[in-house]
């Protein structure tokens, strides 16, 4: 296919396939722990790091990653304090992230165009260096989910039973949150901070709507995510559309199709 002769598109598809794999792998556990806004929150804090990086001229995605890790630590700290109100930690950290980012934006008025790259994503400018970083993150996340699958399942399904059974619930939840920060940092370049949450939550929502068992759902969330990202990239390349918007709309379209399909099947 002629399309693939372009190196820019090749790099975008490699990055997209990696993100399409890791976002739903972490996303399904995040959604089922009722922390759907976790990705969004980390992304908002991460964008504050990106803004600081642009202001002081240090690799923006690197600082964004450090801020994302900090957000993950802070969320877990607040979750421990407000044990029965997990969503409160999300609200507090998200507000803090937006507040810091807005101040940094006003301090660095000259870099608004650069900031937009991170807010809305620019997958067609992804560099080989960034692909290597995304690959490293992907290896860590795939290994974590593969090695700790049974612990992740039990903790997500029934945290009390996992704790009674002696599993290190807090440690595994913490690592899961840290890895969400990895996914966000990797995915910001693809869809941007404002839509990164979509890659984490919508494939999971579509997978859950299929009403299958856990392993099958995990498998289908990855397939749905990969399909939407690769198809979205190709459509946006061909028709000169925004890739992030195309990918997210495709994901929403798949989700709605599954929901309508099941509703029709029942009637």
């Amino acid at each position: 296919m002629d399309l693939f002769q372009y190196e820019i598109l090749q790099r975008a598809i490699i990055a997209g396939v990696l993100i399409g794999l890791i976002s739903p792998l972490i996303g399904l556990f995040v959604v089922l722990r009722r922390l759907s806004l976790l990705g969004d929150t980390i992304a908002h804090v991460s964008i504050a790091g990106v803004a600081l990086g642009l202001l002081i001229d240090i690799y923006p995605l690197g600082l964004g990653f450090l801020f994302a890790i900090f957000a993950a630590f802070a969320i877990e700290m607040f979750r421990k304090y407000y044990q029965s109100y997990a969503e409160l930690s999300i609200a507090i950290i998200m507000s803090g992230g937006i507040a810091v980012a807005s101040i940094l934006f006003t301090l660095g008025k000259g870099y608004n165009i650069n900031v937009q790259t991170y807010l809305f994503g620019s997958i067609f400018t992804v560099s080989m260096q960034e692909i290597w970083i995304i690959l490293a993150f992907s290896v860590i996340i795939v290994l974590f989910v593969f090695l700790f699958y049974k612990e992740l399942f039990l903790i997500t399904f029934d945290e009390d039973a996992a704790a009674v059974g002696g599993l290190p619930v807090r440690a595994i939840n913490f690592v899961n949150t840290i890895l969400t920060a990895f996914v966000v940092s990797a995915a910001i370049k693809v869809v941007g901070a404002l839509l990164v949450s979509a890659l984490i939550t919508i494939p999971a929502a579509a997978g859950i709507a299929l009403r299958k068992g856990f392993k099958t759902t995990l498998f289908w969330t990855v397939i749905i995510s990969e399909f939407a990202i690769v198809t979205g990239l190709l459509i946006s390349w061909e028709w000169n559309l925004a890739p992030n918007g195309t990918i997210v709309l495709l994901l929403i379209g798949i989700l709605l199709s599954i929901m309508i399909g099941f509703k029709k099947a029942r009637t």
Binding site: K150, F153, K212, G213, K215
Partner: peptide, 23 residues
């Protein structure tokens, strides 16, 4: 959670997960 995507077999099997060593 009624929407949780787990089969009966997966839930029953998870009873062994605390006995099984990590990894």
């Amino acid at each position: 959670n009624p929407l949780f995507p787990a089969t009966v077999k997966e839930v029953v099997l998870s009873g062994l997960y605390s006995r099984k060593k990590i990894l």
